[in-house]
């Protein structure tokens, strides 16, 4: 199932609605990296609230998305990781180092607002 990517101001929001196959995840990654440039987005939010399982491929893909979009000029924040998922991830050593996380969509937007304001006003 394809993940819808919405544009909201300077930000892109990818809201995952159901469990994804590895192919779906790769497709999401490519779509995001492409759109970030095309739409001149400054931030990306990936909402994983609907996921109650996250395997190592999913975590790696999320990390890749964050690093790739950063290279393309946009900061990524992962929002809505469930407590049980967080606990399992930590136990498996999948900790998304260097990737911003936030509680939910609202928090993610607030984070990106702050982040981009600091970065673009200083420049």
């Amino acid at each position: 199932m394809e993940v819808p990517i919405l544009k909201q101001g300077h930000f892109l929001i990818a809201s995952i609605q159901s469990a994804l196959t590895d192919a779906d995840l790769s497709q999401l990654r490519e779509a995001l990296v492409l759109r970030v440039g095309k739409l001149r987005a400054r931030g990306v939010i990936v909402d994983v609230t609907a996921l109650d399982v996250m395997d190592s491929f999913a975590v790696r893909t999320l990390r890749d998305i964050a690093h790739m979009t950063r290279l393309r000029g946009a900061e990524t924040v992962i929002v809505g990781i469930q407590p049980e998922v967080a606990f399992a991830m930590v136990q498996l050593g999948l900790t998304l180092k260097g990737v911003a996380t936030a509680l939910d969509l609202e928090e993610g937007l607030a984070f990106l607002d702050r982040f981009t304001k600091e970065r673009f006003e200083r420049a």
Partner: peptide, 12 residues
């Protein structure tokens, strides 16, 4: 350390 990491994943 794990607790700290897990909390960070929730944005705290």
């Amino acid at each position: 350390v794990q607790t700290v990491e897990a909390a960070r994943l929730l944005g705290a």
